[in-house]
């Protein structure tokens, strides 16, 4: 029996969420009286997982897996789960993990719960807490199958150090031609910039910014904070910003530590998708904007005056605290 966690990497480097799911897996394993094993595909520096409580790393090196492929990766993880007699399989909530998890669950006839926000409240029956209704509620969900698949909501557990020495074993899954029936042709991705899924801070602009030409200050604020940029739905519908930046109930969910909403009114559909963020700041000219009811901090003011000042003062702050 064990807990198996899939630790994602990008160009050989573990993503931050890899250390978060590792930290979480350690806690779940402890509850079950077992240890946590990680499976890492095309990653380097496997030992770093030991810092977060991983006892064993299954290291997969296979050029066929150089580019993410959901079915092939799922197959590798399922084979690892079988070898390790894994009782619980843990993934993150990145777009790749959300693609993989249902495939893994169906192959193993396992119950799958996504958007999990805490360690199991009990292990027999096995109950975890997750967000539902686009963050307008939580559910305690029970999984009745022998094997369980959990998708951890990003930034909901954090990084917790539990230093151990991880043993590293090579693991060679048997892959079939059929695993590659969906093939990657081209990847078009911004590099060197935080993404909404991973970022600890997200800076988001709404219709209050008047037009795409005014996004320079949003980009700049994001850059000073090391943040990802996002936008409200009408902004992406009008083509001011790419679809991939649209956040909210029908866009990308945001679960950052800090969400800064600039010129966004705070419609219920917008709030639903961003309320998992721990701290929310709103900058809006209208004191009656509904976002003020959902925010932790707010400035009633014109974004075109407030944001440049904020950028200037943040630069000073960063220089002092560097």
């Amino acid at each position: 029996m064990s807990v198996l966690v899939y630790t994602e990497s990008d160009n050989g480097k573990f993503k931050k969420n890899a250390f978060e799911v590792a930290s979480y897996a350690y806690e779940v394993a402890k509850q079950l009286g077992t240890t946590a094993t990680a499976i890492a595909i095309q990653a380097n520096d496997h030992g770093s997982l030991g810092q977060y409580g991983i006892s064993k790393v299954l290291k997969v090196t296979n050029d066929q897996l150089a580019v993410f492929n959901a079915k092939a990766y799922a197959d590798a993880i399922v084979q690892a789960a079988n070898q390790e007699s894994a009782q619980v399989i843990i993934v993150s909530s990145s777009s790749d993990s959300k693609y993989l998890a249902p495939i893994i669950a169906a192959k193993l006839k396992a119950g799958y719960i996504a958007n999990v926000v805490s360690v199991p409240e009990g292990t027999s029956p096995f109950i975890v807490k997750r967000t539902v209704f686009s963050n307008k509620g939580f559910a305690q969900s029970q999984i009745d199958t022998d094997i369980k698949v959990l998708g951890l909501l990003n930034n909901s557990f954090g990084l917790v150090e539990n230093s151990t020495t991880a043993s590293i074993e090579a693991f060679a899954p048997t892959l079939e031609e059929a695993d590659f029936a969906v093939k990657s042709i081209e990847i078009d991705k911004v590099v060197g910039k935080a993404t909404i899924a991973d970022a600890e801070i997200v800076v988001s602009g709404g219709r209050g910014l008047k037009g795409p030409e005014n996004w320079g200050m949003i980009e700049e604020l994001a850059e000073v904070l090391g943040a990802a940029t996002a936008c409200s739905k009408p902004v992406s519908d009008m083509g001011w910003r790419p679809h991939s930046e649209h956040v909210g109930q029908t866009g990308k969910p945001v679960a950052s530590n800090l969400y800064i909403a600039i010129g966004i009114s705070g419609a219920i559909q917008h709030l639903a998708g961003v309320s998992s963020s721990k701290i929310k700041v709103v900058i809006n000219t209208d004191p009656e904007a509904p976002f003020f009811k959902a925010a932790d901090y707010g400035i009633v003011g014109d974004a075109f005056e407030v944001v440049p000042k904020l950028i200037e003062k943040l630069r000073e702050f960063k220089a002092q605290n560097a």
């Binding site: 939580f138 999984i143 959902a294 904020l310």
Partner: peptide, 24 residues
């Protein structure tokens, strides 16, 4: 495979702290 045994609404949020626009 799964069932929801209990639901919960998010904890009520405290009031927003307003900061003056001249005092970022």
């Amino acid at each position: 495979a799964t069932n929801d045994v209990k639901f919960q609404r998010p904890a009520p949020k405290g009031a927003v702290k307003l900061v003056d626009a001249d005092n970022v």
